[in-house]
């Protein structure tokens, strides 16, 4: 799995490839180019929406950590995995100029 430090400026949502909508269990997102549909639970879908809106990832981690009463370190790891999955499936591109491995 790709490892990278998460910074909002590094992420670019491929909005022309994405469609999404809410469902009872959370939400669905599709990569229109590949046809792959992903089922997200309520938290996953909320995280997806806030990332799409462009929230500061630091702020997102802080909010999630507060909501789930969990260590920031753990939340940061989960968010990182989630973003890596979004990258792998083509929903998000990494801004290569700013993507320096740390």
């Amino acid at each position: 799995m790709t490892s990278f430090a998460i910074k909002q400026s590094m992420l670019k949502f491929n909005k022309n490839k994405i469609n999404y909508r809410e469902e009872k269990f959370g939400g669905l997102i599709i990569n229109i180019k590949t046809g792959k549909i992903f089922k997200l639970n309520k938290t996953g879908y909320k995280v997806f929406l806030v990332l799409l809106r462009g929230i500061e990832i630091k702020k997102l981690i802080k909010n999630l950590s507060k909501k789930f009463e969990a260590e920031k370190k753990e939340i940061r790891r989960d968010v990182k995995y989630f973003i890596n999955d979004l990258i792998k499936e083509g929903f998000v591109s990494k801004n290569s100029q700013q993507n320096k491995k740390k």
């Binding site: 909508r21 809410e22 469902e23 009872k24 269990f25 669905l28 599709i30 549909i37």
Partner: peptide, 8 residues
Amino acid sequence: LSRLLVPD
């Protein structure tokens, strides 16, 4: 029954 609200 994990029926979607709207079909995909």
